[in-house]
């Protein structure tokens, strides 16, 4: 059963907010993980690991560098669902 784009955004915002301590309403689709949200590589990999489990998808390491913004990650997860 696939998640909707809205569900994925909401779920990802929750993961990022938990990991960074940033309020959920500041984690917007256009925000850059590194430049806006100040997420380092270790935190990014934590977010990836938690998102893979939550949405039952695989996010290959090679793909992570292409996920610049929260919206990029949502789009990738939408497309990666089986």
């Amino acid at each position: 059963m696939a998640y909707t784009e809205q569900e994925i955004l909401a779920g990802l915002v929750e993961i990022v907010s938990e990991e960074t301590g940033l309020p959920a309403d500041s984690v917007l689709p256009e925000k850059s993980f590194t430049d806006d949200l100040d997420i380092d590589s270790l935190s990014m990999m934590t977010i990836v690991t938690l998102a893979e489990e939550k949405f039952d998808v695989r996010i290959p390491d090679d793909e992570v560098k292409n996920l610049a913004t929260v919206g990029d990650a949502v789009s990738f997860i939408v497309g990666a669902q089986g």
């Binding site: 270790l42 990999m45 934590t46 690991t49 938690l50 893979e52 489990e53």
Partner: peptide, 13 residues
């Protein structure tokens, strides 16, 4: 329970 891919990157530090 879930396999190696679920081990969090902060585990060692």
């Amino acid at each position: 329970e879930k396999g190696a891919r679920r081990v969090l990157p902060m585990t060692v530090p």
